[in-house]
């Protein structure tokens, strides 16, 4: 009986408060419309890559429907995963990214703590300055940097150009400012009383950082870590400029330089390589997504 009454009442309510729910319905329709467009736009390339990676070279160049695999094959995957060269690129990328993430966090977390909490002369200017350096594009920097390393090589005999470890110096110029900036924002959202309580409890600055701030700001640190990893994993310009020998190359550059021979594009393997290269960040995002979002929305949700 009760259900019947509610069913009868429902339409009248809808009419009465119609404008509110109508607005809401339309807002939802529009958001779905744009979200679907966005999803198509961003998912089409990887799907096309996946389709192509499952085709043989002959099928790729054949005039059949490019959106369908008629003779699926794993030969591209087997070819890359058994190629020492490709595994070398993958290994180089992994080593560089892990080192860069570590270096970045070791610099930016203490830097952010100092800039956010230890009031010293010029700290505000410095904090802004850190962010400004992030705004300078690498396209502007790579020539002077190349020249700089060449000069250092001439003067000291330390050869940095065409060595994978030169990237450990280059990538942090991109990751440190941004990660520092993220962490400044995150640390600033931690109530001032928390470090005052720690100070009164007898903690030094270092102890306040390691025992209070890092655990409390852990989501922010995860977000910064993911960012640093993504940047160093996907970076293209610097490794293209600074490394040339195939044993020094990281994956993005390696794929391009070894799988394009003159005007011959080995599309199947290029697509496979790109997909395999995209896998690590995807896996990391999948596992740390919740932390990442919590890190990005810090401050907004702090009660």
């Amino acid at each position: 009986m009760a259900t019947v009454t509610i069913d009868k009442a429902a339409p009248t309510r809808k009419v009465k408060y119609g404008s509110m729910s109508r607005d809401r319905t339309w807002a939802l329709r529009w958001s779905y419309f744009f979200l679907v467009i966005f999803a198509i736009f961003s998912l089409t390339p990887p799907i096309y890559m996946l389709i192509t990676s499952l085709k043989s070279s002959a099928e790729i160049s054949a005039a059949t429907n490019p959106w369908w695999v008629f003779h699926p094959t794993l030969e591209n995957y087997l070819g890359l995963l058994t190629s020492n060269q490709f595994l070398r690129f993958f290994w180089n990328s992994a080593i560089v990214s892990i080192f860069v993430v570590t270096i970045t966090m070791l610099i930016s977390v203490p830097a952010a703590f100092a800039l956010a909490r230890m009031r010293f002369w010029g700290s505000a200017v410095l904090a802004t300055g850190v962010f400004l350096t992030y705004l300078i594009p690498e396209t502007l920097l790579f020539i002077p940097l190349f020249k700089m390393f060449a000069v250092i090589g001439d003067w000291t005999g330390i050869q940095l150009i065409n060595r994978w470890y030169v990237l450990l110096i280059l990538y942090p110029t991109l990751t440190v400012p941004f990660c520092t900036w993220i962490m400044i924002g995150y640390f600033a959202s931690i109530p001032k009383e928390l470090d005052e309580a720690a100070i009164i409890d007898g903690a030094s600055w270092i102890q306040t950082l390691t025992r209070i701030f890092i655990p409390v700001a852990f989501p922010g640190i995860i977000a910064a870590t993911i960012f640093a990893f993504t940047v160093s994993w996907a970076q293209f310009l610097y490794p293209l400029v600074f490394t040339t020998s195939t044993d020094q190359l990281v994956m993005p550059v390696g794929i391009i330089t070894t799988l394009i021979k003159g005007d011959v594009f080995n599309w199947g393997q290029i697509m496979t390589g790109a997909l395999l290269g995209a896998a690590p960040p995807l896996i990391i995002y999948a596992f740390l997504m919740d932390y990442y979002i919590a890190g990005l929305t810090a401050g907004a949700t702090k009660g």
Partner: peptide
């Protein structure tokens, strides 16, 4: 830390 005091804050400031 060397004044041997303890403080209770308005927003509790619990870790």
């Amino acid at each position: 830390k060397d004044r041997d005091i303890a403080m209770v804050f308005q927003n509790y400031a619990l870790y």
